[in-house]
């Protein structure tokens, strides 16, 4: 039996295990809720996990198309990118699959030894590549976050933390190395609130 056949046979089991290990990266109190509330609007995060891991696994096993993998990863990683996770744990969902498969294989390999090393290495390389793609997705998400922050900073000149000034005022002040800019456009009136 080769690896592909083996994994196809075990597909549902492996996917379940994978879903479970992804869910378990969340607090125990939350995990139960993810599993039991099945309405995708009442439980968007749980739904995203359980609806994504299966297709992602199939994609890895069959087509292995980077574009499809990225867009599937996007659903999960996008959420994790704004949660409590460190970057490494945010993308670790991919490696959790490796762990699941190794756990599964351990029993069967030791029994008959029919699975070829190069098959396993090949599939693990796919997972590695998938992890790299997850990193891309993660970075894109984080860049959108910072893009939003920057955008806010530009669009909201009236509140910018420290010295709240109109943006053109700030720029001009900078040019004059700290001197008060008298020729600030002061369109917004903020230039001289304080």
């Amino acid at each position: 039996m080769n690896l592909e056949k083996f994994l196809t046979k075990k597909r549902d089991h492996v996917v379940d295990k994978w879903i479970q290990s992804v869910q378990e990266t969340y607090p125990a109190e939350t995990v139960k809720f993810f599993r039991h509330q099945r309405n995708r609007f009442a439980n968007p995060l749980g739904a995203a996990i359980s609806e994504t891991m299966g297709p992602l696994f199939d994609e890895l096993l069959n087509e292995n198309n980077p574009q499809n993998i990225s867009s599937l990863l996007d659903r999960i990683i996008r959420i994790r990118a704004v949660q409590e996770f460190e970057p490494s744990s945010a993308v670790a969902v991919v490696f959790l699959l490796k762990k699941v498969i190794r756990d599964e294989l351990k029993k069967d390999i030791e029994k008959d030894g029919l699975i070829k090393v190069e098959d396993l290495l090949e599939f693990e390389s796919r997972i590695d590549y998938c992890a790299l793609l997850a990193f891309d997705v993660y970075m894109k998400c984080r860049e959108t976050i910072w893009g939003n922050k920057l955008d806010d900073f530009i669009k909201r000149p009236y509140v910018t933390g420290g010295n709240m000034r109109c943006l053109s005022y700030m720029l001009k002040q900078e040019q004059r190395q700290g001197k008060v800019a008298e020729d600030c456009c002061n369109n917004c009136g903020l230039g001289e609130v304080r």
Partner: peptide, 16 residues
């Protein structure tokens, strides 16, 4: 209130 049956992925799901 939040207990009505709803359709989700083709099945009727009752909130716990």
């Amino acid at each position: 209130k939040h207990t009505k049956a709803e359709m989700a992925s083709g099945n009727i799901i009752y909130g716990g």
